[in-house]
Nucleic acid binder design. Sequence first.
DNA 1: GGCGATAATCTCGCTCACCGAGATAGTAGG
DNA 2: CCTACTATCTCGGTGAGCGAGATTATCGCC
Lengths: 163, 163
Amino acid sequence: MPDNHEPENHQPDDREPENLQLVHLLRAVTVDFGLRQAEFAARNGMHPTDVRALICLLDAARAAEPATAGLLGARLGLNSAGTTAVIDRLERLGHVARIRDEHDRRRILLRVQPAAIRLGREFFGPLIDGVLRVLDSFDPAERDTVRRFLTATHTVFASDPRP
Amino acid sequence: MPDNHEPENHQPDDREPENLQLVHLLRAVTVDFGLRQAEFAARNGMHPTDVRALICLLDAARAAEPATAGLLGARLGLNSAGTTAVIDRLERLGHVARIRDEHDRRRILLRVQPAAIRLGREFFGPLIDGVLRVLDSFDPAERDTVRRFLTATHTVFASDPRP
DNA sequence: GGCGATAATCTCGCTCACCGAGATAGTAGG
DNA sequence: CCTACTATCTCGGTGAGCGAGATTATCGCC
C-alpha cells in the first residue's frame, strides 16, 4: 500500500511517526493472513478464491444466514458464471454439498461438509490457538484495548465503498 | 477460515469464547484490507497482484533493498514468466520503470513512479489517516498494548511455513 | 583471456479462473 | 395461464500464471 507518509513535507519531523509503524504492522499481519490462506489453498489443491468461499459459507452458517449460491457470489464479487465454477470445484473436492431449497426450488443451499471443516481446523487451529495464547497473556483491560482498536479499524475500513 | 471452535464438545460452555470473537474481528479487518486493495485495483485498471507488487516494491524501497524483478517474483510467489507479465503491465500503465543495474547488467531494477505513489496516497491516505486518528485517541500505554498484540500475532502467523 | 557454470530475465505454448451474454427452471401476480 | 421476475447454469472468449527452455550477462578457474 503506498502509504508513504514519511516524506510528507509539512512536518519537518524526520523519524517515521510511531503510529504509522503500527499501521505497517497491521498491514503486515493482514498480509501474513493472506499468505496462510494461499498456503492452505495450495496444500489442498484449491485456489485462494475457493478458500475465501469456504470461509464465507462458514461465516454465513455461524450467522444462521441461508448460504445460497447467489449470496456467495455477491460476497466474493464474482458473477454467476464464476460462482457456479467455484461451487463446482468445491463440490468436486467434496467440501460442500448442493442442496435444493424445498421452499424455493430455484435456490441452491450450500452446506460445508464436516471433512472440510476438519481440514480447516487442522491447518488453522494451531494458528488460532497461537493468537488465543497471546490474548490469554493479556489482562482484561488490555484485551478491551485490543478489541476497541480492532473494532475502530474495522469501522474505518468497512465504511463508504464510495461511488 | 474454518475456525469453528464453538461447537467443540469438550466444554459445555455454550456462548462463544470472548477471545475467539477477537480472532474473528482480526480476520474481519484483514478481509476489509483485501477488499480495499481489490477496489483500488479495479478502480485503476489493475489486478490485485499488480497492487501487491506495488506494495512490495514500496516496501523494498523503504527498506532500501534492491527491488529486482527476481525479488518481486519471489515475494509474490510467481514464477519468472508471471513476474515478467506483472512488470509489463505495471510498466504499460506507467507505474514502474525498468532500469538496468549498471553494476550487474543482468539485473533489472524497478522504480515506482511518482504518479503511482500519488495514486496510492489518494486512495489509501484517508484510510490510513482514519487508523491514525484511532491511535491518536489512545494513550501511550494503550498504543503499546496494540503494538504488543500486533507484534505477537505477526510472529504467530509468520512462523514456520512448514514442509 | 577464453570457457564452462551460474544467474537474471524474457519468450512460447498451455491451462484454467473469471467475465459477458444468454439459456433454463422455478416462482409470483394479474 | 401468461408475463415479469429471480436463481442458477451453459457457452465462448479473455487473460493471468505455469513449465520449459531460450537469451544475455557475470564470475571463477585453469
